[in-house]
Design a protein around this nucleic acid. Structure first.
Ligand code: FES
Ligand code: FES
Lengths: 143, 143
DNA sequence: CATATAAAGGACAGTTTTGTCCGAAATTAT
DNA sequence: ATAATTTCGGACAAAACTGTCCTTTATATG
C-alpha cells in the first residue's frame, strides 16, 4: 500500500511534531529509535521532507528536526505520502491500464475506484496534528 | 497497491476465462498480447496459478491455458491476489507496526482499517466470473 | 516414429527499493 | 580558534521485483 520509505516518513513526521509540541528538537537517532526504522535510510527520507518544507531542520549540537504547531495543523498525510510515493496509487488503474476512466474502464474499475477514492480522501483530509493528538493522549503508538 | 505480477495474473485469468467461455484454450502469446504484458514474465506468473489450480494448462499443439466456467464462478479476485502478492497488504498495519490491533493501534489505524477492510471484502467477494461478464459484454477492457 | 507446437523450468540480467558508510558542512559550547 | 555534535550529500551495497533467454518436457498430428 505505502512503501517502507513512506511509512518511515509519516511516522517520523508525527513523532517530530509530538516532540515539537514540547518545544524540543529531535535528533535522527532519537527518531529512528522511537519509530523503529533504519537510521541512515530514515535520514534520506527526512531530507526530502526538509527540502519540501514539510519539516525543518537545524545542524549542530542542539540541532535536529522540528515542525511548528501551525504547520502540523496544515500539513496532511497526503502531503507526506505524495512526496515520497507519488500520486500514482491514488489515481491510476488498479489493474494497470494506461488510463483509468469511466468510459474505458477495467473490469474492476467500478468497485475499485470507490475504495481508492475513500483512501485518497482519507489521506487528504487527515492532518498530521490530528494524529499527533492521538499519540500524545497515549491512544496510539508509533512502534 | 497490487504488484505488476499480480495485475498481470488477474488480467490473464480474466482473459483465459473469457476464452474458455467459448471453449477455446488460450496460448501464452495470445494472452500477453491481449493484456499487454511481457510474455516470459507472464509465463512465470501463470505457472504459479496453474500450480495452485486457479487455472489449468495443457502442453503441445492445441494446448494452452483454460479454466472451467464453474471454477471461474468459485474463484475470487482474492484467490489470485493472495497467491501472487500474499495477504500482508490486507491484514497489516498501514504504517508498518509489527501488529495491527485495536488495543495497540497506530495513529492512522481507525481510519485506515475501515478502508482496508472494504478493499479486502471487495476482492474476497468479487468472482472472476463477474469480471468476465463485463468484458464479454464489452463494458470493460483489459488493455 | 518424426515433427511441430506450446507450457515448464532454470539461469541470468536489469531496475527499483531498501539500506549502509563515510566525509563535508553547519552550528554550538568550551 | 578548537572540538564536539548533528544534518547533508554522495557513493556504494544488498535485496526484491521485473523481465529475458534458452533448454526440457509433454502433447498432437502426419
Ligand atoms: S480503469 Fe482500472 S481502476 Fe479505473
Ligand atoms: S495498527 Fe496501523 S493500521 Fe492497524
Amino acid at each position: 500500500m505505502f512503501s517502507k520509505a513512506c511509512k518511515y516518513a509519516v511516522k517520523a513526521t508525527i513523532y517530530i511534531a509530538v516532540q515539537s509540541g514540547q518545544n524540543t528538537r529531535t535528533s535522527l537517532k532519537d527518531i529512528s529509535a522511537k519509530i523503529d526504522s533504519p537510521e541512515a535510510f530514515t535520514a534520506k527520507v527526512l531530507q526530502v521532507l526538509v527540502k519540501n518544507q514539510v519539516i525543518e531542520s537545524l545542524k549542530g549540537p542542539l540541532g535536529g528536526f522540528f515542525i511548528s504547531n501551525e504547520a502540523a495543523k496544515l500539513i496532511t498525510l497526503s502531503h507526506v505520502v505524495y512526496l515520497i510515493d507519488g500520486t500514482e496509487t491514488f489515481n491510476s488503474c488498479g489493474l494497470g491500464l494506461k488510463e483509468c476512466s469511466e468510459c474505458r474502464p477495467c473490469p474492476m474499475h467500478h468497485k475499485f475506484q470507490r475504495i481508492r477514492s475513500e483512501l485518497k480522501e482519507m489521506i487528504e483530509k487527515t492532518t498530521i496534528y490530528e494524529l499527533v493528538l492521538k499519540v500524545g493522549e497515549g491512544e496510539s503508538f508509533l512502534m
